[in-house]
Write a protein that binds this DNA or RNA. Sequence first.
DNA 1: CAAACCCGTAAGAAAAATCTTACATGTTAT
DNA 2: ATAACATGTAAGATTTTTCTTACGGGTTTG
Lengths: 109, 109
Amino acid sequence: MYADVFDAIAHPGRRLILERLRDHEQPVHALADQFEMSRPAVSQHLRVLLEAGLVRERRAGRRRLYRLEPTRLAEVHGWVTQFEQFWQARLGALGRFLEENPEAPEAGA
Amino acid sequence: MYADVFDAIAHPGRRLILERLRDHEQPVHALADQFEMSRPAVSQHLRVLLEAGLVRERRAGRRRLYRLEPTRLAEVHGWVTQFEQFWQARLGALGRFLEENPEAPEAGA
DNA sequence: CAAACCCGTAAGAAAAATCTTACATGTTAT
DNA sequence: ATAACATGTAAGATTTTTCTTACGGGTTTG
């Protein structure tokens, strides 16, 4: 029924659109203004996201407001998490060091 | 330096390859036997994964063993996690209901 | 009503992805 | 040395993606 979510988020521009929709719904032209992308291109990307179930559309007068529909991202999260223990094992060395040395200053803090 | 990780995992076949490499390193022909894909196709997908930094190559005699290099998946995990609170809020309602009503029959069970 | 606005979509071009076949290279076995 | 094996890669065809321009249908404004 839905298009492939992994495919939908493969395009950098579509990821940017999702990020912009993270907090507020937005009409198409507002998105097109933020990116260096023509308005039809944004429309077409929105359709891909719509078919993937990653956004929803709401009509308001002459505008169409798009909002994030994040539930399907759980599918990506789930797939990646299947590998989490493996990269945690690699990145974990630093993490354990910090846990066992609470007085050590954290980066960026 | 690296190719786009999101792009690399967009192809279903490449995701299958990564899953097969999750536990053990494997030579190319072993992977080609598992999937309905020609051996050159597997080689080409492995190159994409290699350029994305998702696998590593080790030469052993006439074979080349590929193993998972999972650290770059953390990038995907990080991006998706940026949206986690939003889908958790949505999926959370059902989860809490089930926790508070242990006797309620689950769908499909 | 007329003009301005918001938007989707068709058409077509250009670029990228994907697969197969054929070939070349290096390795192991007999 | 010869044959069998393991693999990468080039070539080429096919399909898919992505973008722009052009157009048309609704909606709001003046």
